[in-house]
Nucleic acid binder design. Structure first.
Lengths: 137, 137
DNA sequence: GTAAGGCTTGTACCCAGGTACAGGGTCAAG
DNA sequence: CTTGACCCTGTACCTGGGTACAAGCCTTAC
């Protein structure tokens, strides 16, 4: 039940080269090899890659993704460090969610405005959406 | 009360060159010029640039940001199109919020696990966080 | 046993989004 | 009336994240 590169690539919706790239970058662990030299992936690889792609869509860099993945497998030895890192990431995420929510509200009210007010300039909420940063730190 | 490039750059937390770049790319409208040739910005420019930077942190591209900004000032003439675009973006945003929330939950439970279980492998929720895509479309 | 496809490595290229000169004009302080 | 800190334009460069060859080995189907 070993997956080959193209299987993983297809399943995760990425290019085959991307897998090699992730391997070089230390994001995707180097898999076992068949005697032929072919890489033998498990479905863990698919999960990792899809995770990374999602994380990217959410504005995280590859480095962020790598770090998040490392948290996953931090042994109990480095648990405190992992916890701290996780907590920091949590703050990032909360901020992103706040911003997205503000943006959502702005867009939503904009859509409504567009729907009814077919005549008359509407004061547009988009710019205000992200500007006040009501960051209650 | 005209702002100069460095004022805007400082206020928005970006490099001066970035302003020129955004202008070239049509993201930031070309401002009035003094007789000297100096650009004269209003604080609108600051708002636009900060908006763009935030949007980028949320995983939107410059093109996305530009599009969002264009929605803002669509006259009543193109209101229906604007509304459609806004609605599409809303779907994007909702998906991002869903993913982030899943990630948040995963990280949060991870942090907890790290906090108490200082001995014993913990099954880590990070990978599962983003994988099942419970997309109720 | 051979042809079509998939795998390997290495290297080179590409796009988005900036960032950094170089060469020159402007402006305010002293 | 010059010096230092700004601004202008143009062009060249850089990083992150891939993507695309090229040259050669594996595998499966016929």
């Amino acid at each position: 039940m070993a997956l080959r590169t193209s299987d993983v690539a297809k399943a995760a919706g990425v290019n085959v080269q991307t897998l090699r790239y992730y391997e070089r970058e230390g994001i995707l662990p180097a898999p076992r090899r068949a005697t032929s030299g072919y890489r033998q992936y498990t479905d863990e690889a698919v999960r990792i890659v899809t995770f990374v792609k999602r994380a990217q869509e959410l504005g995280f860099t590859l480095r962020d993704a790598k770090e998040l993945l490392r948290l996953r497998s931090a042994g109990p030895k480095r648990a405190p460090a992992a916890r701290a890192a996780a907590t920091a990431k949590l703050a990032d995420i909360d901020e992103k969610i706040r911003d997205l929510s503000a943006m959502r509200a702005a867009l939503s009210s904009l859509a409504e405005a567009c729907a009814c007010a077919t005549g008359g300039a509407v004061t547009c909420p988009i710019l205000e959406a992200l500007e006040k940063t009501p960051n209650p730190s």
